[in-house]
């Protein structure tokens, strides 16, 4: 198995707050990794550092064996690592399809054209395909601010996938989505991801969702990784149960950690 993403003693301090402490992570190609941890455990900080949004205080990040320390988010995106956001990051005054079309144009070239129309027939057709793939074709011409949270999340993820990344980091793809819709949303996402053959790491608070989709779990607590392994083992770990998931009975009562 080849390692696609590796961090070595990654640290991040915000003043007195230690948001990441000696994170040593190796993600292999093709894995689907779930990240769990209570609020403020450092999950988003980890994604932000890996994608170049936050500068680590110390440590090393390797993507496909090469250091990406100090690279800009756009360089890292172009290198093949895409992400979605805890709060969907879209263009609020544009329609859903225009959001996708902008992403398609960006994926084609880093230098957008000065005179040829952005909304070309080819891009519109491709965007419509993506709308169908993600099951949001009903919102084609709605402003993104007017569509439900779940659809917004899907558009956010679709935009990340448009650049054909090798690795996708999803920050709480199901947050703000009702419990019944979570599985549908994740099925849609995981289908798309499988078709693209992408390595995935996603942050999730709902342990049922985690167990259903991942092959490996990283448990964060207070900036540290306290467990790393197969879902069954990690979720059964006493420390994880004490600090992250709470004493979760086998029923699906509650929302996992919060």
């Amino acid at each position: 198995m080849t390692c696609i993403l590796e961090t070595r003693s990654l640290n991040k301090e915000f003043g007195a707050v230690i948001a990441a402490k000696d994170l040593n992570v190796q993600i292999n190609k093709g894995e689907v990794v779930g990240v769990i941890g209570s609020n403020g455990a450092g999950k988003t900080t980890f994604i932000n550092m890996v994608t170049g949004y936050l500068k680590p205080t110390r440590g090393e990040i390797l993507f496909n064996g090469k250091s990406i320390m100090g690279h800009s988010p756009r360089a890292i995106t172009r290198a093949g690592m895409a992400r979605s956001f805890q709060v969907a990051q879209l263009f609020p005054e544009m329609t859903v399809i225009d959001n996708l079309i902008v992403a398609l144009a960006a994926a084609e070239s880093a230098r957008p054209s000065f005179l040829s129309p952005l909304r070309s027939d080819a891009r519109i057709a491709r965007a419509e395909e993506i709308l169908r793939e993600f099951g949001v074709e009903n919102y084609r011409d709605s402003l993104v601010t007017a569509v439900p949270q779940g659809a917004r999340k899907l558009v956010d993820i679709a935009m990340a996938l448009i650049g054909n990344p090798q690795m996708l980091l999803l920050d709480e793809p199901t947050s703000g989505v009702s419990v019944d819709e979570k599985t549908d949303l994740m099925d849609t996402v995981m289908n798309a991801v499988r078709q693209h053959g992408v390595t995935v790491l996603f942050v999730e608070h709902d342990m049922d969702v985690v167990e259903r989709y991942v092959s490996r779990v990283l448990a964060f607590y207070s900036g540290e990784i306290i467990a790393d392994g197969e879902p069954a083992a990690v979720l059964a770990d006493q420390q994880v149960r004490d600090l992250v998931t709470g004493h979760r009975p086998t029923t699906k009562q509650g929302n996992g950690a919060s």
Binding site: P73, R74, R83, F91, V102, A106, L118, M159
Partner: peptide, 21 residues
């Protein structure tokens, strides 16, 4: 064209533009 629309996109959400590469 690309640049015109994407400049509006920059106004609306610079972070997203950056993460589109």
């Amino acid at each position: 064209a690309g640049i015109g629309v994407i400049c509006e996109a920059v106004r609306e959400n610079e972070v997203r533009v950056e993460y589109l590469g």
